[in-house]
Each structure stands twice: as structure tokens, then as C-alpha cells.
């Protein structure tokens, strides 16, 4: 019993250390020639455009539901006119980034874990290395960079559609015009809402790419290993997103108090 607990702690610290080393290796290699621009663009397309429908739909529905659910409460206080400000701040600050990041953790991180994991298992990574291409650069760096760059974009689009969904509810239920709604939305928002929220989405994207490629790159032999890589990528990426979110909020708070 004690042994297994100790082992778990060991495993946890070992994992953390390996993940950190992996991240450091990313930073070492990311800024060194040659740059795999084409592969980066391909991955950007994979992460960005391919995730777009899912993110758009989810964002839209979240905005819709959030508005529908809070409407009765606000109505009770006669504060329905506060809806745009409330929805905009909650979506832009928190719900948008986190929901989109979680969706991407599900779609992208698991995909990366499975893809790179199966490449590892079928020796494709070895084949790359032998043929003179640094697989870490070609596979890992491009993918982490792609998720880091594309997640903010997806979040912005998700936020936009979320606000649009909210507007549709407000428009049909409360006769709020497009102009009025978005006037109030931008009235409620300030740079200190947008800037930290956007910055943390870069971190979310980085975490998703890092965990996904790490799980795949260190995949154990066999098809079971691939499954486990995909699974652990999703779980750890989601967890990491919440941890990063928490830290980002704490740091932002600190920063704006000073």
C-alpha cells in the first residue's frame, strides 16, 4: 500500500520532470534552423480550420444557453438590460477560452497523441530520424507551435459566435437590436478583460500541443500504447488547462491590483 503510494508520487514527479524537459527541448529546437514552415502551415490548418466547425457550434450553443439560463434570474431583478455586459464578460474572460480549449484538448490533443503515438509504434519516427530529418522538429515543434498559434484564433471565433448566440436570444426574446447589443457588449469590455484572456489562450494552446505530442512521442510499443497515449493526452491536457486558467486568473488579479 505504502509502496504503491510512494510509487505514484514518484511517477507523478517523473512525469512532471519529463514533460518539463520535453517543453524545454521544444524551446531549444523551436528557434533553431531549419524551420519546417510547410509542415507548420499544414498543422495550423489541421488544428485551426479542421476544429473550426466544432468550436463554432459549441461557442454558439454556449452563448445561446448561457443567455437562456440567466435570463429568468435577471428578469426577476429587472436587470435584463445587463445581459449583454454579463454575457460578454463571462464569455470573453472565462467561458470562451476554457470551453474552446477543452474542446481542442479533446479533438487536437487526442489526435496528436494517437498520430504521433502510432508513428512511434510503427517506427516512422525512427525512419524520419534515420533519413536526416529531426523528428522532434518536424513533428513536435510544428504541432506545438500550431496549437499555440491557432487556439487563440479559435477562441476569438468561439467568443464571437457565443456572443452572436446570446444576441439571437436577446433579439428574439427581448427586442434588443444588433447595434444596442454589441454596443453594450463592448461597453462592458475593457482591455484588461481581453488581453489576459487572449494571453492565456496561447498558454492553453501550448499545453494542448505539448501534452498531445508528449504522450505520442513517449508512446509505448503496441496498439494499446497508442490508445493510452491518446487517452492520457486528453486527460492531462484538460487538467492542465484548468491549472493554467487558475494560475492566469490569480496572476491577472495580482497584476491589476498593483
Amino acid at each position: 500500500m505504502i509502496y504503491s503510494i510512494q510509487k505514484r508520487f514518484e511517477d507523478f514527479f517523473l512525469f512532471t520532470a519529463e514533460l518539463s524537459l520535453f517543453a524545454m527541448r521544444y524551446f531549444r529546437e523551436a528557434f533553431r534552423r531549419p524551420f519546417e514552415i510547410n509542415e507548420l502551415l499544414r498543422q495550423c490548418y489541421n488544428v485551426g480550420n479542421r476544429s473550426l466547425p466544432l468550436v463554432a457550434l459549441t461557442g454558439f450553443i454556449i452563448g445561446l444557453v448561457l443567455t437562456l439560463q440567466t435570463r429568468p434570474t435577471l428578469q426577476e431583478f429587472g436587470a435584463v438590460s445587463w445581459m449583454p455586459s454579463m454575457v460578454s464578460i463571462s464569455i470573453v474572460r472565462e467561458i470562451g477560452p476554457v470551453i474552446v480549449a477543452l474542446i481542442c484538448a479533446g479533438r487536437v490533443a487526442s489526435g496528436l497523441g494517437a498520430e504521433i503515438g502510432s508513428m512511434r509504434v510503427t517506427e516512422q519516427i525512427d525512419a524520419m530520424e534515420v533519413s536526416g530529418t529531426n523528428p522532434f522538429k518536424y513533428l513536435v515543434v510544428t504541432r506545438i507551435t500550431a496549437t499555440t498559434l491557432m487556439l487563440p484564433m479559435l477562441v476569438i471565433l468561439g467568443d464571437t459566435l457565443g456572443l452572436y448566440g446570446s444576441y439571437i436570444v436577446e433579439n428574439t426574446k427581448g427586442d434588443v437590436s444588433f447595434m444596442l447589443f454589441f454596443n453594450q457588449v463592448f461597453d462592458a469590455l475593457e482591455y484588461q478583460d481581453i488581453v489576459p484572456a487572449t494571453l492565456k489562450t496561447f498558454l492553453f494552446g501550448f499545453a494542448i500541443g505539448l501534452v498531445g505530442t508528449f504522450a505520442g512521442y513517449t508512446c509505448k510499443k503496441g496498439t494499446a500504447g497508442v490508445g493510452r497515449a491518446a487517452n492520457s493526452a486528453v486527460v492531462i491536457a484538460s487538467l492542465l488547462i484548468f491549472i493554467i486558467d487558475f494560475m492566469a486568473v490569480v496572476i491577472t488579479d495580482l497584476f491589476y491590483e498593483l
Partner: peptide, 11 residues
């Protein structure tokens, strides 16, 4: 180097 399972890049 010819790999055991061919190791063609399947993408």
C-alpha cells in the same frame, strides 16, 4: 535502413 513494418509516413 529498411524498417520492419516498412514505416512509410501514412500522412
Amino acid at each position: 535502413f529498411l524498417f520492419q513494418g516498412s514505416a512509410l509516413y501514412d500522412s
